[in-house]
């Protein structure tokens, strides 16, 4: 492997398709050896950004550097990136081993390793992806998860400077997804390669990555560790994208936060007085008596799963939301309940 993993800098990248901007002034630094998730909903521009980094698409403005060297105009063939496509893009007329060896065989004679060296490298990679017995199979004979692993091995075979994965688990079912996630993490730890993957699944991003870059409508909303983006979302868009939240009217008065004229334990030391909105996650509620409640409503459904109660409540105005609590006492349907807020994020 590369002794010094590559850093990638994305500087002021913008791109539009037929006049529709899909990326606006993206600035992002990817550290050497880190596993970064590009997270965002459909149409946020995350795949386009990945394709621009790979050289499959060229930006309208801005530049990309690999370890400080400008690669914006370097063609994809020379950029030394390993790209794993969402639908694998395996060569279906080639065996698994030939697929993996493709990039090495494609080299000019002078740069091409000897035949037995290529074969050995393919074997090692088959080993790595635990498909030793499938060397002579064709892609059509493999399952989705196996194809994905072959696609990754193929990308790794050319010893790329960075590994780029586009929705790597998007087309797989839930169980295979979970296994592959853990496996990708392992591989990354073993190779220590700078890796970027695109996903629209927050859980996947939060579980796998060292840092998450959240894109929304072509803008980079926040970059941070999974914990940072969860605990301190930079915008409502990030907050919303990372999970459900109920926003309630609140007021700051003398460095205290009040909802429904009752105190909420959220730090507002640096805020001036005035109205604001408090965004509360489902687990930041406790069931309580009506007198103590920050908000109240009528229970419309209740179920318990994996040790937690999920209670759906209709507020007087008609708004419906579900809370998620570890409390043992379950309310009945049609019961009027009060909720105490134990945390939340403030956005005006």
């Amino acid at each position: 492997m590369d002794p010094k993993p590559t850093t990638i800098a994305v500087e002021g990248i913008a791109k539009s398709f037929k006049g529709t901007p899909v990326l606006r002034d993206i600035n992002l630094e990817i550290r050497a050896g880190e596993l970064l998730a590009l997270l965002g909903p459909s149409g946020s521009g995350k795949t386009t950004l990945l394709r621009i980094i790979a050289g499959l698409e060229s930006p309208d403005s801005g530049r990309i550097t690999f370890s400080g060297a400008d690669t914006t105009r370097v063609p994809v063939q020379k950029r030394e990136v390993g790209f794993v496509f969402q639908h694998y893009a395996l060569f279906k007329h080639m065996t698994v081993a030939d697929n993996i060896a493709y990039g090495l065989n494609a080299r000019r004679r002078a740069d091409r390793p000897a035949r037995n060296e290529i074969a050995k490298r393919a074997r090692d990679l088959l080993d790595l992806i635990k498909l030793e017995k499938f060397a002579d199979h064709y892609p059509a004979q493999l399952s989705g998860g196996q194809r994905q692993r072959v696609a990754l091995a193929r990308a790794l075979a050319v010893e790329p400077r960075v590994l780029l994965l586009d929705e790597p688990f998007g087309a797989l079912d839930a169980q295979v997804r979970k296994d592959l996630r853990r496996w990708l993490r392992d591989i990354h730890q073993r190779t220590g390669q700078t890796t970027i993957f695109v996903t629209h699944d927050q859980e996947e991003a939060l579980e796998l990555s060292d840092r998450v870059a959240v894109l929304h409508a072509g803008r980079l909303e926040q970059v941070g560790t999974p914990i940072e983006v969860q605990d301190d979302p930079a915008s409502v868009a990030v907050l919303r994208f990372l999970g459900d939240a109920l926003d309630v009217a609140a007021e700051v008065r003398q460095h205290r936060l009040l909802v429904n004229d009752r105190f909420v334990l959220v730090d507002v030391a640096t805020r001036g007085d005035g109205p604001t909105r408090l965004h509360v996650r489902p687990w930041q509620f406790d069931l309580t008596s009506l007198e103590d409640a920050h908000v109240h409503g009528t229970v419309t459904s209740v179920y318990r799963a994996q040790g937690r109660a999920h209670v759906t409540i209709e507020r007087p105005g008609g708004a419906v939301f579900t809370i998620d609590t570890a409390q043992a006492a379950m309310p009945r349907i049609d019961e009027r309940v009060g909720l105490r807020i134990v945390g939340g994020h403030l956005f005006d």
Partner: peptide, 18 residues
Amino acid sequence: SEINATDIGLPTLRAASV
């Protein structure tokens, strides 16, 4: 899940690339 060139029908733009 993503806006990409094929969705917006830009064969010419992509044709100019790889």
